[in-house]
Nucleic acid binder design. Structure first.
Length: 270
DNA sequence: CTAAATACCTGATGGC
DNA sequence: TGCCATCAGGTATTTA
């Protein structure tokens, strides 16, 4: 569910509630996420929290001993609750600060994770192979062009590859390709230099606009206040199978690429 | 090396 | 109302 804008929205929302706080308890109600939650997570209690950051779709919540690597998977969300509101089904982890601030991790499908990365450990395997952030200067048209040479992989799967650029998930991949006028299913090796320029601009544009809107809520994403994001109303092709293209009125088509639904306009995207 | 398939899990939805 | 099949925003790991 959450792609980069949703994770960024969550990060910005929880940060002011957590930075500088000392935790009273770290409660794990369900340790079976994608991987078992390690006991080291309790080290979060040993010193005040001094970092709340996002890298790709991971949230990094840490202190001087290390940091929790949190992923929201397909159905995860983090909410800050001030009072002692009751735990819901699928609330798997709770961080409680000494001032009463309560952070709850909710994840019905449990595709997410909470791992620990000690401050002196090797670069974590989940983080070490990630490509650049979409807003970093090292992600640019030249990178898209050079990495796509000789690729038979589809354009859509190419931009969803974390080694190319992080944070582009199934929704924003379709949206960015529409904005750039590029067919999702065509081999990435055929991208021209000009197409790479448009694609780079489109990815940056779509992601930043969505962050401004608080992300996309299709069915269950909520921010740290429990509120939905509003970018769904800005989606041009995702989920609009059969509806008229907003640019040319042709019916939007749906195909499957790498087992994921993909949407495009057969007229605007060549 | 690349690329596709598989695996993890619950819940919502639609057809019969 | 119930049952079954299908689909859902991610991605590491396995297989080909």
């Amino acid at each position: 569910m959450p792609e980069l804008p949703e994770v960024e929205t969550t990060c910005r929302g929880i940060r002011p509630h957590l930075l500088g706080k000392r935790l009273r308890s770290v409660r794990v109600h369900q340790p079976k996420l994608r991987w078992p939650i390690p006991d080291e997570i309790q080290l979060l209690k040993k010193a005040p929290l001094d970092s709340v950051e996002r890298r790709a779709k991971y949230l990094l919540i840490g202190n001087k001993y290390g940091r929790a690597i949190v992923h929201l998977g397909m159905s995860g969300s983090l909410r800050v609750v001030d009072d002692g509101s009751p735990c819901r089904k699928h609330d798997h982890v709770e961080l409680e600060a000494v001032d009463g601030t309560l952070l709850r991790y909710h994840d019905p499908r449990r595709f997410g994770c909470w791992l620990w990365h000690g401050v002196d450990e090797e670069p974590h395997r989940l983080l070490s192979k990630l490509g650049p952030e979409p807003f970093d200067p090292s992600f640019n048209a030249e990178r898209l062009f050079s990495l796509s040479r000789r690729k038979n992989q589809s354009n859509k799967q190419f931009i969803m590859d974390n080694a190319v650029v992080v944070g582009v998930g199934n929704i924003y991949a379709s949206e960015a390709l529409f904005m750039a006028g590029i067919r999702p299913g065509v081999a990435a090796g055929r991208l021209s230099k000009a197409a790479c320029t448009r694609l780079h601009e489109s990815i940056v544009h779509v992601l930043s606009k969505s962050i401004e809107q608080g992300g996309t809520t299709l069915r269950d994403f909520v921010n740290s206040d429990g509120q939905p994001g509003y970018f769904a109303q800005s989606l041009a092709v995702y989920g609009r199978d059969g509806l008229a293209c907003l640019r040319c009125d042709s019916p939007i088509r749906k195909t499957v690429l790498g087992q994921r639904s993909s949407f495009y306009c057969p007229s605007c995207q060549r």
